[in-house]
Amino acid sequence: MSIDNYEELQKFIDLNEHYRTYLDEHNNTRPDGRKFHENRSIQILKKFLQHSYGSSMIRFGNTTVICSITGQLAKPSLKSLRSGFIQTVVLLPRTQAWSTYGRRQQIINENLTLSQHLLDIIYKSKLINLEDLCIEEGKWVWCLQIDFQCLNNDGNLFDSCLLALNVALHHTYFPTVKIDPDTQKPLVYTKELKHFQYNQQQEPLCCTIAVYEYEQEYKYLIDPTLEEENIAKCILHYVLLKNDQICLIHKTSGAPFSIDKFHQCYSFAREYILELRRKLNQ
């Protein structure tokens, strides 16, 4: 590994010390030039994939995520004859996941955890009604497959995935399905598309905050990079609905938090998510 300058050497040896040194020399500024409560540039590309029902690509700085929505015909569960299914899968870059065995297992666990969190948010926010996935009661339903492929992970995956999901859903079109009266088999008409109906009044979006301890005080870093996530005392995730109602608050183990600090971080999250909504509706 080549080390070009002293700053890169310091980051390689002790990332925490690098951040402390930088904050001593630059008041309220992070090493990438942003203020503590400033997010990276956000780029949104709609209808990114040709052969999916809905798709999007989102870039938060160097973090790049593709969301793809597809569907398969399935038989409904006997417990609910009118309800379809939803599956979510998050995949990190293979080059990152297969570096060493220990790191590989950790990333696999992170993938599973993030996939489950996203599925829980879809259910809890009632973003998608499972009965809207019914084609014919007791016979055929849609199994909705939502895949998140991370092309580059530089932190803040949670925010990126949820924004990508909302953008993709807004441009999702399903083929028309009719049941053959003779054979009772489904006939799929790929040229007759209809817009997928979901609950646009919910629109859950996430704000990730890295809590960093500096001079016995907590600094709250909005839209953290991967480096900032690695040195954080803890990570906070605030998921808010369209009316600013809290859908989820998740905190990793670490620094203890008072109610006042949770309220303070909520105000940061609300302002940040308001900006995400502006981007989403452009």
Rank of each mutant, 00 (worst) to 15 (best):
S160G: 13
Q202V: 11
Q201R: 00
D154M: 09
F148D: 00
F196Y: 11
Y173H: 13
Y198W: 13
Y212W: 09
Y218R: 10
V141T: 05
K185L: 11
C150M: 15
N156P: 13
C207K: 06
P186T: 08
V167K: 04
I179L: 13
D154F: 11
L151V: 05
F196A: 01
G155R: 12
N153Y: 12
L144G: 07
P204A: 05
V167C: 06
W142Q: 05
Y173R: 14
F174Y: 14
Q145P: 04
E229D: 11
W142R: 06
P181D: 10
I209R: 00
D182S: 13
Y198P: 06
F148H: 01
N230T: 05
P186N: 09
P186I: 09
A164Q: 08
P175L: 06
V188D: 13
V141F: 00
F148G: 00
T190K: 09
L144Y: 10
L205F: 00
Y220K: 08
E215Q: 15
W140Y: 12
Y218C: 15
N199P: 01
Q145A: 11
Y220F: 14
A164I: 01
D159H: 01
C150D: 11
V188K: 12
I179G: 08
C161F: 07
H195T: 13
Q184H: 07
T190R: 09
T225A: 03
E217Y: 00
E229R: 10
P181M: 08
I179Y: 10
N156L: 12
D159E: 03
P204V: 05
C161T: 04
L165H: 00
Q145L: 15
P186W: 07
E203S: 04
L187T: 15
F196V: 00
G138Q: 07
L205V: 01
L205G: 02
Q149G: 09
L162H: 02
L187N: 15
E227Q: 14
Q197A: 06
